[in-house]
């Protein structure tokens, strides 16, 4: 799983049936300093996250399909949690 911040949302009417009923959010992966790192992703939201939230993104196909309880869903990236707090000793080290 990766840490990311929600930076936007996407509205789509014509999409595959498995996407129906879920929100699509744009997320920017972040490091433990909460700095942007890497390329943006479009992910499916299962926990009602919103813009500005730091979230936990599952970026692996089989796990995503398990969450959706659909063995043939063509989905890899799913938000599985909203992060309240990150505790680490590594923050600020260079």
């Amino acid at each position: 799983m990766i840490l990311a911040r929600v930076i936007g949302q996407v509205v789509s009417t014509i999409k595959l049936d498995v996407f129906k009923g879920f929100k699509l959010l744009l997320v920017q992966p972040i490091d433990i300093e909460e700095k942007p790192k890497g390329k943006i992703l479009l992910v499916l939201d299962t926990v009602q996250a919103g813009v500005g939230d730091v979230v936990l993104v599952m970026d692996e196909g089989n796990s995503a399909r398990t969450i959706l309880e659909n063995t043939t869903a063509p989905i890899r990236s799913v938000i599985v949690g909203i992060v309240d707090e990150i505790q680490t000793d590594k923050r600020g080290e260079k």
Partner: peptide, 13 residues
């Protein structure tokens, strides 16, 4: 690579 949906609108902060 497969196209899975058409985007109507997109909001980015």
């Amino acid at each position: 690579l497969t196209v899975m949906g058409i985007i109507d609108s997109l909001y980015t902060e």
